[in-house]
Every structure is written in C-alpha cells, then in structure tokens.
Design a binder for these strands. Structure first.
Lengths: 228, 228
DNA sequence: CGCTAATCTTGACGACTGTCAAGATTTCTC
DNA sequence: GAGAAATCTTGACAGTCGTCAAGATTAGCG
C-alpha cells in the first residue's frame, strides 16, 4: 500500500482542472485547492530554513522542525526533497520577477528610473538576502545536478525578461534604443548584484551604496547614441 | 596520542622557514617540501572529484577513492574537510589569475585584445568547466558558511585585479581611460561568464559563441570618450 | 451518528558522513 | 642494518540523512 501524494504533478494543476468550475462563485474551497494551499504553507516554512542554511545543509527534519509540521508530512505533499526545494524556489521567484514592475510603471524620466531601480536593488538585498543567496546556491547546484536545470533555466529566463523590461523602458524614456541585448544586460546586472550581495553578507561597509551608484552609472551606457 | 598533521598552518609556510637554506643548491628536498608536494598531489586528485560532484556531495571517501590514497590520509595532511577544500580551490585559482597575462602582453591593438580575451574565456569554459562550477559552488556556499568567506574574498579580489589588468591594457592600447571602476568591470564579466557557463553545461548551442561576441561587443563600452 | 477518505505523527530502516585512533608499513638517519 | 620518525591503512565511532510504512487523528459526507 504505497502512499502516493495526490496532486503531485508538477505545479499541481491537474487536479484542479477536475473540479467543476461551472459557477464562478461556487466551490470556493475544493480539496485540491486546500492541498495546494498546504503546499504553499509548507513551502513558506521551508524557505525560512533554506534561506538560513542553504540547499545542502537543510535537512527535511530541520525544515519540519522550523515549521508547524512533522518531518513525515513532507513526503505526503512532495515526492522527494528535490521536488520540495524546486517548488520553494519557484514559489519565491514568482513574486520576485515583478519586483520592479512598479519602478517601470512609475518612473518619469531615465534618471528617475535608474535611481528607483538602484534603490529597489539595494532594498531587496537588505530585506531578502537569505532568499537571494538561496537562489545563487540553487543555480550553482544546477551545474552539478541535472534535475535542477530545467527549473533554474526557466527562472533565469524570467529574470532576464524582467531586466529587459527595465532596459526597454529606460531606453524609451530616453528616446533611444538599447545598445545591448537582454542576455548581456541580465548577466551584467546579475554579476554586480551578486558581488554586492557577497559584500553585504561579508559586512563590507558601503557595499550597498556602491551597488546603487554602479547601477545609476551603468544605465546610460546601455543606450545606443540616439537613433538609427 | 592525538595525531596532528605537521605543517598544518595555513599555506604550509611555517615549517619550510625552519629548514636551513644556507646553500642555494643544498637540501633539494627537505621533508617539509615533500609534505607540501603531497598536499598538492592530494589536492589535484581531490579537485577532480570536487569538480565532478561539487562541494556538498563530495565525501572524503569518494575523494580518496578517486585517488591513490586511502580515506584516512586526508586527516594526516588536512585538519578537516573544509581545510582540504579551501586549499584545493586556492591551489587551482593560483594558476587561474594569470590565465590572461599572455593576452595582455601580446595584444597589439584594442580589437586584438578584445578578441584574444573572448577566445580565452571560451577556451577555459570548454577545458575547465568543472573547475569553474566548483568555484561558483564554493562562492555560493560562502554566503552561508562563515569560515569560507576569507578565502573566497581573497580569490574574488585577485580575479577582480586580473580583469582590471585587462581593462587597463585595453584602455591604454586605445589611448583612452576606463569608464568604469574595476569592481563593476569584474562583476559584469563574471556575470556574463557565469551565464555562458550555465548555457554550456545545459548544452545550449551557441552559448560559447555568444559569450565571445558579447565580450567583443562590450569592451568598447568600457572606455571613456577620449581624454579629460 | 457512522463510515470513508484525507491528513498527519511516529518510529524505524539502511546508507552515508566526518572524524579519529590503533596498528602496519615505509622512509630516513646514524 | 637497527632504531626512530614519518607516513599510510584499516576499522570503527557516533551522527545524520532521505525515505518509507503502519497506525493515529481529523475532516467530509450520507
């Protein structure tokens, strides 16, 4: 009698499709929805531990101890440790890729956009450093662990798109064209962001102010002269 | 009778200083030197396993199995696993930071330098991808493990210096001044290099050619117009 | 209420880990 | 070549790990 977690397909969409969604207001809480909510609650708990200890040192028991669940329940909602962790990072990064949407929407000038962008980058390092280091940890692990690559590639792509939206908006506000392609822009910003995160975790004074200044100084260089 | 590895001070310099170095040609092989050689041999074996499995999944037994040593000998030459791994990465990165010295010395024009640089970057990804992913792994781990930060910071600094030498030489050849500071340049190149490495490991066609083109295209943007 | 299915807890398993110590083996020195 | 020091092997230790299964508990429904 092997126990198999129901709704364990990726993203847990399958079961939800089976519930009758005839009346838009009816069936507020189908059991499948509750199952999904539980997974999210478990993921949020797990993210605390993962952000503190990293991928390798986070045992399922430690994750469960720092939550309201017991260590066995993990295998009820996830097939194995990897599925839990991939779910967690995907869950977190969902909220991540829209972090700068406000910046893009509200900026009134190129300089304004650059400054708001720099501020947001600094802010997220201060407030969510554990999540960011977890992301870099997982991305590094994906270089060794084949089964992580699909999720990491997808997240990386969505982050690249996020940066592309900023650069495009910046160019539009400046009445110019971007001088570099999206992958380059993403790689660059990701690189200096990673350095700032490292400096911040090392307690290096000025790491965050440097990041802000670097971003503001870099943005104008991303534009082609004026027009073709 | 606790066993303590002799010459276990960092970098193993202390004992060597005790050997009489009066005659320049005498005492070719002091026992301390042999001890150091053994550490290096062990490190080279360990690097193969570390590059294959990464930091967390490389057990001391696995490292020893892929070498000519037994698993117990590790504690004769290193105090613990961390000291071994830090020694390994330091050992490897020593040869790493001079990879582009030839490029700097031989380049005859800015464009020539940019192309040689791009070629070398591609070459090292092809030939030493496991070493590079190990480095990114270790750097990510240092965000969680305090005891890794000193070594990682030092290596990162020497890599930044390496990039600075390239940018400076590029500017000199072009008769201009660098438009960006060394930390920014390093962060940028490290970022796009990391993306290329990820793409290469993912089997993405064109990842290496993209890197080469990105670098060649990026270099001119690192220069301030002409002169002050 | 009573029954069934979903959910959760508990405890155990085999495997693997870093570390260490005792003894075997080799190397060096006189 | 004998004695001593350095080097290496082997085996064991106390933990921790992911995983799983059996049973307890709860929730949903007629």
């Amino acid at each position: 009698m092997t126990r198999v977690a129901p709704n364990s397909g990726r993203e847990g969409v399958s079961l939800r499709l089976m519930t009758p969604v005839a009346a838009p207001k009816a069936s507020r809480r189908t059991p499948a929805d509750k199952h999904d909510e539980r997974r999210k609650a478990l993921a949020e708990s797990a993210l605390r531990t993962l952000g503190e200890l990293g991928y390798a040192r986070s045992s399922l028991r430690e994750i469960a101890n720092n939550s309201e669940f017991s260590h066995g329940v993990v295998h009820y909602y996830f097939n194995d440790k990897l599925e839990l962790i991939v779910y967690c990072v995907r869950y977190y990064k969902e909220t991540c890729v829209h972090r700068y949407d406000g910046v893009v929407a509200e900026a009134t000038s190129p300089d304004d956009l650059a400054e708001r962008f720099g501020d947001k980058l600094v802010e997220t390092i201060v407030e969510e450093a554990p999540m960011h280091r977890l992301w870099y940890d997982l991305r590094s692990q994906s270089m060794f662990e084949e089964s992580l690559r699909e999720a990491v590639t997808q997240i990386d792509q969505s982050l690249e798109d996020m940066i592309a939206r900023i650069v495009d908006r910046y160019a539009t506000l400046a009445g110019a064209e971007p001088a570099i392609a999206a992958p380059v822009a993403y790689g660059m910003f990701d690189g200096i962001f990673q350095q700032a995160l490292l400096g911040h975790l090392n307690g290096r004074e000025g790491a965050l102010e440097d990041l802000r200044a670097q971003v503001v100084g870099l943005m104008p260089m991303l534009l082609a002269p004026a027009k073709a």
